[in-house]
Amino acid sequence: MASPRFFVLEKDKLRSRYDVEVDELEPINRGEGPDCPRCGGAIGMLEWLPPYRVELVLHGEELGDFIEPTGDDLLVSERFARAFQEEGLTGLVGFHPVEVVRVRRKRRSPKALHVPAYLVVRTSPISRAAVDMARSRIVYAGNPPTCEECREATKNAIHGYTLEPGTWGGEDIFRPRGLSGCLTVSERFARFVEHHGFTNMKLIPTEQLVWDPLRRGPPRAKPGTA
Rank of each mutant, 00 (worst) to 15 (best):
L9A: 15
D12A: 14
L14R: 14
R15S: 11
R15I: 06
S16T: 10
D19M: 07
E21L: 13
E21I: 00
V22G: 05
G33I: 00
D35F: 15
P37K: 12
R38N: 09
A42P: 08
I43N: 12
P50G: 07
V54C: 04
V57E: 10
G64F: 02
D65P: 03
F66R: 11
P69F: 00
P69L: 00
T70F: 03
L74S: 00
V76I: 15
V76K: 13
E78Q: 14
A83V: 04
F84M: 05
G88D: 01
T90P: 02
G94I: 07
G94N: 08
V103I: 07
K106I: 02
P110R: 14
P110W: 02
P116H: 02
P116V: 09
A117W: 02
L119A: 09
L119M: 12
R122F: 13
R122V: 13
P125Q: 09
V131G: 07
M133T: 07
M133Q: 13
A134I: 05
S136L: 10
V139L: 12
A141M: 12
A141K: 15
E149S: 09
C150Y: 00
A157K: 02
I158E: 06
T162Y: 04
G170F: 07
R177G: 01
L179R: 13
C182H: 05
L183E: 11
T184Y: 03
V185M: 00
E187K: 10
A190N: 04
A190L: 00
R191M: 03
V193K: 06
V193Q: 08
E194W: 01
H195T: 11
G197I: 06
G197S: 05
I204Y: 06
V210Q: 11
V210M: 09
P213R: 08
G217M: 09
P219K: 10
P223H: 11
G224F: 06
